[in-house]
Amino acid sequence: MRLSPVIALFAACALAPMACDNEDPTPPGADAGTDAGTDAGEPRASVSSAQPAEGSSDLYPVELYYDGAASRPGVYHRKVLTVTFSGPMDPSHSQVMLTHRSDSSIAPRTLSGQWSSDHRTLTVTIPAPEEGGPPLEEKAPYALDLTQLLDAAGRPIDGAPVVGDGKLDFTTAERDGDLEHACTHTLVNTPEERTAAATKFAFPPATDIGHTRYRLTLPGSDGTHEGYSEFISAPDVDENVTLYFDREVPLSVHDEIGNVEVPVEIHTTAPACAGITHQARFSAMAGDIIYSLHYGPASFATFEFILERQDR
């Protein structure tokens, strides 16, 4: 009878133990175990979600914020990205590399992220470059290289299925100069307090000064609030009027001279700053026309907006 290689090895060792002290009894082709320091069968951590998402093409490239602790307090630019993993990561490894995928003349940037308390989410803040310019260029392709990160067992991340090559690819959107201008006002200006009138015949307060940050309180009770403010158009020029809200606010506009409703466009804004989420726009005709602005009904009593008026 022919003995298998494993049985033959153990039989030989039983007869001559000293000759087998340094032999490896693991048969050829057998798994000697997983990577050092890991539990057998435990998968490597992988990317479970990211902001921006892999392959996205609409990331707003900047965020405006106020830094009062800077040597020159004021409004600055940054962009914050987050990556969440399927399991805990090694918090001693937090560096990632940002590269511009289409312009090799732009040097890659090494960035250090901050881990969440459970070591599963890495927050990467991209500051404006020291030499000037925005954190990210508009309408540009980027990659955030995550391959230097290690999971809690000391292994490189498993890119599948979200970032197969270990790099988070995304493309930025076009910037909105009017929105960013309004952001500076919501970050710097002191709010002008106003209380809305319960009806448009109860002397609504004026809210028609451009570049102004208003904080408006609506009358109401039982969780329902609504009210009016007033806007007077320019005497000799038609205008586009935009209200940049800090939340979604129902708004309707009435031309009191012509006794007609004015069309209002309301939509969400790009996340350019923390104080603006929605905007409403309408056209105002020249001639010192009185427009009644009706807000609500709403579940909240107080909100803020930046008012901007531009000649058409």
Rank of each mutant, 00 (worst) to 15 (best):
R2F: 12
S4L: 07
S4K: 11
V6H: 05
A8I: 00
L9G: 09
C13V: 02
C13L: 04
A16F: 04
C20T: 04
C20W: 10
T26L: 08
T34K: 15
A36I: 09
T38F: 14
V47C: 05
P61G: 06
L64M: 08
A69P: 01
R78T: 13
G87Q: 14
D90F: 04
S94V: 03
R101T: 14
I106Y: 07
S112N: 06
G113L: 01
W115N: 13
W115C: 11
S116D: 13
T123E: 06
P127R: 00
P129K: 07
P134K: 00
E138T: 14
P141A: 05
A143Y: 05
T147G: 10
D151F: 11
R155V: 08
V162D: 09
T171C: 10
T172W: 03
G177N: 13
D178L: 15
L179Y: 04
T184E: 10
T184C: 12
V188N: 07
T195S: 09
T195K: 05
F203P: 00
P204G: 00
P205K: 13
T207P: 02
G210T: 15
Y214L: 02
L216Q: 05
L218W: 02
G223V: 10
T224N: 15
G227C: 02
I232W: 12
V241I: 06
E248W: 01
E248L: 09
L251E: 11
D255Y: 12
V260S: 13
T268R: 14
T277L: 08
Q279A: 05
F282E: 03
A284W: 00
M285W: 04
Y291E: 00
S292G: 15
Y295C: 11
A298V: 14
F305M: 10
F305G: 09
Q310N: 11
